[in-house]
């Protein structure tokens, strides 16, 4: 299959979810679009390095994650580093576009952004994108045991954050 066809096929299959993943991670629609393009360009420029020990989809997510991290580091390294230390110190602005587009789950998005970065990473991959533990471990370059532990703690932290924000666990 020639390169043009490969690009088209991979793009058609995965561009929505890759865009969505990047958008959740950085909260900027236009920038997420650019970074999604960067992801596919990098994938094609480096497709000969793809070893095949993960699925093409997992590989694309790995690239998307690296591209997003690079962007966040360049854009606001202070906030990025502090985000690793403490969500309290981080002054990550609220991504308004997300709220406009997803009013019904805005509480979740806001709570996610207040979590430590590691918790957010694992919740987004496991619960939003529904990767398996093995795939999540591969994308994050973590051990599977760490994925399990971090997911459990991350969900606990998410629930606490929801309660802190005035939400209570009731069946609606």
């Amino acid at each position: 299959m020639d390169l043009e066809k490969q690009i088209k096929e991979l793009y058609e299959q995965h561009h929505h979810e890759i865009f969505s993943y990047i958008f959740i991670m950085i909260g900027d629609w236009q920038q997420a679009r650019d970074l999604m393009q960067d992801t596919f360009v990098k994938a094609f420029m480096n497709h000969d390095r793809f070893r095949g020990d993960a699925s093409p989809k997992t590989w694309l997510y790995q690239i998307a994650r690296n591209v997003s991290i690079d962007y966040l580091r360049k854009k606001k390294p202070v906030a990025y580093y502090l985000d690793y230390y403490s969500p309290i110190l981080s002054k990550q602005p609220t991504p308004d576009e997300v709220l406009q587009k997803k009013e019904n789950v805005e509480y979740l998005y806001l709570a996610l952004f207040k979590l430590k970065k590691g918790y957010r990473d694992v919740i987004v991959l496991r619960k939003v994108n529904e990767f398996s533990i093995k795939e999540t471990a591969s994308i994050l370059n973590w051990k599977e045991s760490r994925v399990k532990t971090m997911l459990h703690r991350g969900l606990e932290a998410l629930r606490k954050e929801l309660v802190k924000e005035g939400y209570t666990n009731e069946t609606v």
Partner: peptide
């Protein structure tokens, strides 16, 4: 307190991935 449904947490989290380009 505003209610949220813990049983629907997974479903709500999944719905976060539905951002789509035009």
């Amino acid at each position: 307190m505003k209610p949220y449904d813990d049983n629907h947490l997974d479903k709500d989290l999944r719905s976060l991935r539905d951002f789509k380009l035009s």
